[in-house]
Design a protein around this nucleic acid. Structure first.
Length: 139
DNA sequence: GTTCTTACA
DNA sequence: TGTAAGTA
């Protein structure tokens, strides 16, 4: 078994997760990460790496960085895992509610578009019929 | 060469 | 988030 690295540089993590160092610094700025410092340079631990992984997963699920920061904030608040899972569950539930609402809005819009589409078609047919009957020919 | 901060797009 | 500038 080869020893797994204990710490990582910002570029190590950037490579591993296919993101840029800029993104990692930005996440730190947003409170998602809090790496140690050796002078000015950032030293990332396994815990930081895990948090980054969770942050990226949260992003994929559509959570805002603020929400991710909150959920991850308690990740190492040393509270019982039960509380943490309950929080994540609550967050996921809210996400689902938001997504379902969006779907309803989209469906409503699609119906409106379809209705308007139909009106246009009818108008087109009506005008074609009128022209055939010689109506509306003013000039 | 790598990382950092700051500032602007 | 990308990029540029000027450092350590």
């Amino acid at each position: 078994m080869v020893d797994q690295p204990t710490t990582f540089s910002i570029s190590d993590l950037a490579r591993e997760f296919n993101i840029t160092p800029r993104t990692i610094r930005f996440y730190e700025d947003q409170g998602l990460l809090a790496p140690q410092r050796e002078g000015r340079t950032r030293i990332f631990t396994r815990r930081d790496r895990t948090r980054l992984k969770l942050a990226l997963r949260g992003k994929r699920l559509g959570f805002s960085l603020a929400e991710i920061a909150y959920l991850i904030g308690m990740y190492d608040t040393a509270r019982d895992q039960n509380t943490q899972l309950t929080e994540f569950l609550a967050g996921l539930t809210q996400r689902k509610v938001a997504l379902q609402q969006q779907r309803e809005d989209i469906e409503a819009l699609l119906q409106e578009v379809s209705a308007f589409e139909e009106q246009c078609r009818e108008l087109l047919l009506t005008r074609a019929a009128d022209e055939a009957a010689g109506v509306g020919r003013t000039a």
